[in-house]
């Protein structure tokens, strides 16, 4: 079975094609804001102008007739962007006369991670621009055991980067700066049970910059504090749930320091740490294609009239009937 998946919940616009054993291709055409953050209308304009070309690029590499399922990211995400994705998916499904499967974006991250790493029943730390969550399976659903009380980590990094005059996406630039940071500044370390928050850290960091602290030191302090918080909540979830596997997914997961810290935490409690390869870490079409394939194999399909976008789609709302 071959599945095509379209992702475009925010800045990323990506189509992936997978079969049961591997990723066949990923084609990307991301929206990059000229300045400032992501504007939903501009992002959706970018998506609508470029999705046609992206589809043609994909079909120059795979035969459209070979596609068995058309999957798309139904939510959560920015409404205007989601609508471009859903419209394209409906059109392809009708044109190719193949079933449509609307999938949850967060669950796609998690399932592609399990698929490519071999993690069985992990606690999943999902960190991206808009989302930062601790997710684990409980019976017929995945549940969110902990999450940010204000903004996602990626968003927090972007805010800090922008304040430093750096362009989107800020995460990789902060990571680079942090490597030459030496001095540690104490920042608000906010962990409440398995929940956490980042906005206090952003404000404190901005203040440090105003007071003349070095960018490198701020970046270093920010990473060390935020990642330690995530390692702590991940460990707490693993302890509560008696799970000895941790899976890291989401765009911020590509950060090498975060991976090192989580790996160390797992080592110290004799647990296993998993992270998928970089191209499957951030938002991508292959993860959507894979979850669509998995769901279709287990009897799911989405009727056109049920394919409306779900900007607030929660991972808990998906009934999971697969292993």
């Amino acid at each position: 079975m071959i599945s095509l998946g379209i992702e475009g919940t925010a800045w990323s616009l990506s189509i992936g094609v997978v079969d049961e054993s591997d990723v066949i291709l990923i084609e990307n055409d991301p929206y990059i804001p000229k300045e400032g953050g992501i504007h939903p209308r501009e992002a959706s304009l970018h998506h609508s102008e470029n999705i046609g070309k992206l589809v043609r690029r994909v079909f120059s590499r795979v035969d459209p007739e070979s596609i068995d399922v058309v999957s798309f990211s139904q939510g959560p995400g920015m409404g205007p962007c989601l609508r471009i994705v859903a419209t394209t998916a409906r059109a392809l499904s009708l044109r190719l006369k193949k079933p449509l499967v609307g999938v949850n974006h967060c669950l796609a991250h998690l399932e592609v991670g399990r698929w490519k790493t071999g993690a069985k029943n992990p606690v999943t730390l999902y960190v991206s621009g808009g989302n930062s969550q601790i997710i684990a399976r409980r019976g017929k659903n995945y549940r969110v055991f902990g999450e940010t009380l204000d903004i996602g980590l990626g968003n927090a990094l972007d805010k800090l980067a922008r304040y430093m005059g750096l362009k989107h996406p800020g995460g990789p630039k902060i990571e680079e700066l942090a490597k030459s940071g030496k001095r540690y500044y104490e920042l608000p370390y906010t962990v409440k049970g398995m929940d956490f928050s980042f906005s206090g850290m952003v404000t404190a960091s901005q203040k440090l910059l105003d007071e003349g602290a070095k960018k490198e030191d701020i970046a270093y302090s920010f990473q060390e504090t935020a990642f330690a918080m995530l390692a702590e909540v991940s460990e707490r979830a693993m302890a509560y749930l008696e799970v000895d596997e941790l899976l890291l997914v989401g765009g911020v997961g590509a950060n090498a320091r975060l991976q090192t810290m989580l790996k160390k935490m797992c080592e110290e409690r004799k647990a296993s740490f998993y992270a998928p390869p970089k191209e499957l870490m951030g938002d991508n079409g292959a993860m959507i294609a894979y979850l669509g394939l998995l769901m279709h194999k287990n009897g799911y399909s989405t009727k056109i009239e049920e394919s409306t976008v779900k900007p607030d789609f929660r991972v808990e709302d998906v009934d999971v009937n697969w292993e």
Binding site: Y184, Y189, E224, T225, E235, A239, M261, K264
Partner: peptide, 29 residues
Amino acid sequence: YLGGEAEVRIYSDFVAKKRRKKGYRIDEL
């Protein structure tokens, strides 16, 4: 019991909760 931030040792009549060093975070923090 190895919790989220501390090791909890349970004895017959008391409990010892020890916050051991976490290798994943820097010494200052």
